[in-house]
Design a protein around this nucleic acid. Structure first.
Length: 726
RNA sequence: GGGCACUUGGCGCAGUGGUAGCGCGCUUCACUGACAUUGAAGAGGUCAGAGGUUCAAAUCCUCUAGUGCCCACCA
């Protein structure tokens, strides 16, 4: 052990990580099969950038659990992986293209795919290296990527299976469309924001109705009122003539429960092509009113000429963007005396693209949906019966609420980067669901067949991750001699991730896991909070308050970073990151270093074979240590890592260093050799126990010190030591 | 419009019925050989407010205020 007075992580961390790698014990195959298995599937990080502090938190938490269980003697697997992260990566890559003056819509699909493949592969390498820097003791021999051929194939299998069982349907429904990114989303990906927009009271014949969306008026197919609204009884089921700006037309007044009599005048226009509520109203009145008239195109511009080709007035509005169209239409209607009034204090929520913040346009598009209700019911059940437990438990309620009100899941995305949907369209209109291109259409015998260009929502593959990453294969389950990883490690013990993806990921993993394997995918869900800056503000590039964990590691060491991210970090609650805190744990690492240095310097002549004769006080000290060990073990079992880490910190510094070592100083220089020996025994014993207890939290420094102890077992790593008994 | 959480010394957080704790920061002193990334001593809180339950409440219940977050198709 070097004699430096200061602990220098840079000189230690790489070397120690390589020592672990060489030992081979990250791979549980090397570990004897005992009664217990412990497994965690690492949440696959998005392969589109570097790891941030949020990743560092999950690495620290999971590595703590993994190292603890490995030391306890469990057959312990931590399986690392990376996610292609469909739309997320597409957005990152589009920004890169933009900087280069390119545009994804001008690049052929195959070329774009190839570029993005190389991009994500490069990021994967960086990320793996960063995981090592954080000390992640995961099994690299089992690492997986969500675009590995077997994962792609099995993901498509699931889709095909669900389709056969009627759990997947193709629906022409209103979906949330982003005009910038040219794709639809699921409900979860919408960000709502309160806006203050004008509410226009317009005259439709004898009726005055209120709308915020003037520009969709060309797609109106009816006026709706509440069936019991006294004001409009005489109009219900009658037609009225209205002035549309591009001519006159007749429009029917219908009664529907969905209309709130207190909104505006109690009468609303019905635009089935551009409003979800209106779409549903139309479905209930299909026989009475015309269907959807699409007047807004995929670029978010008015498209009138398609429906009103020879209308010269329509040309005035054709091609206008929504905002300007609204303005111009309002002016025009005022001119013509069709505007009753404008309420400028109208507050409402608008749905935005969670990436670019543009207003999402509901559009009528054929998309693949998962019928989610049957899956959700089963997923509710397993949590209710406590087969799956959330930490903290308050997420039960949140989970139940969402699951009970769940909507069908749109899994189609109009992007390149993802797993292509195994659906084929024949020109005759037939849809064929299979992975390979069909030779000919069974219906028309034609061979003009094209694959669906859409890809799956990335969450559709990642929600199957626990069993896919473990190589789940239905046909193999009644297998021959070899026990598969899936059989050994599934269901996994813990899913540790941020609470922000409870719905996106955790809930869906439970649903798909149950569907596909008939088993829960994991037993415990530990949900950590988000890492904010020291003022509790969310970190973001635009605010410039993002802290790079690897800069922190360079300055203070990985152990200090891990401690700073663990202590004070209770499940489900956000964490305020402060460099001062990390500095404190850097100091602690230094304290460990120097206390160890002291013990090692004073135990050079220690004879491990000699039997110590302990005084009563020694016995009490060691007994206290046992009690303490027991306490820590209990906290580890209870997932209270924040508390365990704090307690060990306190014991090491203020009991071991400040009291025990100080007391032993006289004894170490005692002329009585036996007394010296006893003292050395005591110090080594306590130091070694502390190193073991600390190892899950601060793996590097504890391993480095351990390697220099005169009482370690040969060829062993601390990583692979037995958790202390009590 | 619903729901969830938080409010404890300057800051960040523990603490779920029995005389207020931790880290950082602060004050004073100490650079004698493990460590100044240190040691010793210390200051600092009517536990957001009000009411209730109890022999006893930071801890349980009700209400109020402030903060943060999540969910929701009111045009």
């Amino acid at each position: 052990m070097e004699i430096s007075k200061i602990y220098e992580p840079k000189k230690v961390e790489d070397r120690i990580y390589n020592l672990w790698l060489k030992s081979g014990f990250f791979n549980p195959d090397k570990l004897p099969i005992k009664k217990k298995v412990f497994s965690i599937i690492m949440p696959p990080a998005n392969a589109n950038g570097s790891l941030h502090l949020g990743h560092a938190v999950f690495v620290a938490l999971q590595d703590i659990m993994i190292r603890y269980h490995r030391m306890k003697g469990d057959k312990t697997l931590w399986l690392p992986g990376a996610d292609h992260a469909g739309f997320e990566t597409q957005v990152v890559y589009e920004k890169k293209l933009e900087k280069e003056g390119r545009n994804r819509f001008q690049i052929p699909r195959e070329q774009l795919w190839k570029e993005m493949w190389d991009f994500t592969q490069a990021n994967k390498t960086i990320m793996e290296n960063q995981l090592r820097q954080l000390g992640a003791s995961c099994d690299w021999s089992r690492k997986k990527f969500t675009l590995d051929p077997d994962i792609i194939s099995k993901t498509q299998d699931t889709f095909i299976q669900m389709r056969k069982q009627g759990l997947v349907y193709r629906g022409e429904r209103l979906v949330n469309w982003c005009a910038k990114h040219q794709t639809a989303f699921s409900d979860l990906e919408i960000k709502y924001e309160e806006r203050n927009d004008p509410l226009y009271y317009i005259k439709y014949g004898p009726i005055i109705l209120a709308t915020g969306r003037l520009e969709t008026k060309f797609g109106d197919t009816a006026i709706a009122v509440h069936p019991k609204d006294k004001r409009y009884q005489k109009y219900i089921n009658k037609e009225v003539e209205i002035e549309t700006l591009i001519g006159k037309t007749k429009i029917k007044i219908i009664a529907d429960e969905a209309v709130d009599p207190d909104f505006g005048t109690g009468a609303v226009k019905v635009t089935p092509a551009h409003d979800p509520t209106d779409f549903e109203i139309w479905q209930r009145h299909k026989n009475e009113i015309p269907g959807p008239i699409e007047v807004i195109d995929k670029f978010g511009r008015l498209n009138l000429l398609e429906h009103f080709p020879n209308n010269t007035e329509a040309k005035k509005y054709h091609g206008l963007k929504i905002v300007e169209a609204r303005k111009i239409i309002a002016e025009e209607m005022e001119k013509k005396g069709l505007m009753a009034k404008i309420d400028q204090n109208y507050k409402h929520n608008v749905g935005l693209c969670y990436k670019c913040g543009n207003v999402l346009e509901p559009r009528l598009l054929p998309q693949w949906f998962i019928k989610i209700k049957p899956l959700a019911d089963k997923a509710i059940e397993v949590v209710k019966k406590e087969k799956i437990k959330f930490i903290p438990s308050r997420f039960n309620k949140i989970y139940f609420h969402w699951m009970k009100n769940i909507h069908d899941w749109n899994i189609s995305r109009q992007i390149v980067w993802g797993i292509q949907i195994p659906a084929w369209f024949c020109e005759c209109g037939e849809i064929i669901i299979q992975k390979e291109k069909p030779e000919k259409c069974a219906k028309c015998s034609g061979n003009k067949i094209e694959q669906d260009t859409d890809v799956f929502d990335t969450w559709f593959s990642s929600c199957q991750w626990p069993f896919l990453a473990l190589g789940f294969n239905k046909s193999q389950s009644s297998s021959k001699s070899k026990i598969t990883d899936y059989e050994t490690y599934y269901p996994t013990n813990v899913m540790e991730t941020g609470y922000d993806i409870l719905f996106f990921w955790v809930a869906r993993m439970i649903m798909l896991g149950l569907y596909k394997t008939k088993k829960i995918p994991f037993k415990t869900v530990y949900l950590h909070g988000l890492v904010n800056d020291k003022d509790k503000k969310k970190m973001s590039k635009s605010k410039g308050n993002v802290i790079d964990p690897f800069g922190i590691i360079a300055d203070y060491g990985a152990d200090a970073l891990r401690m700073g991210l663990i202590i004070g970090n209770t499940p489900g609650n956000d964490l305020a990151f402060s460099e001062d805190k990390i500095r404190g744990y850097r100091n602690f690492a230094n304290k460990i270093w120097n206390a160890s240095r002291f013990v090692l310097m004073n135990t050079k002549k220690f004879n491990p074979k000699s039997q110590p004769k302990l005084s009563n006080k020694d016995k009490k000290t060691l007994n206290d240590l046992k009690t303490f060990t027991k306490e820590i073990t209990k906290l580890m079992e209870d997932f209270k890592f924040y508390k365990a880490a704090e307690k060990i910190y306190h014991y090491f510094w203020h009991t071991f260093c400040d009291k025990i070592i100080e007391e032993q100083k006289k004894r170490l220089s005692d002329s009585n050799k036996a007394n010296q020996q006893n003292s050395q025994y005591l110090l080594l014993k306590i130091l070694k126990t502390c190193l073991m207890l600390l190892h899950p939290f601060m793996p590097f420094i504890t391993e480095e010190v351990y390697q220099n102890l005169p009482i370690k077992n040969k060829k062993k790593c601390l990583m692979n030591e037995n958790w202390p008994k009590y």
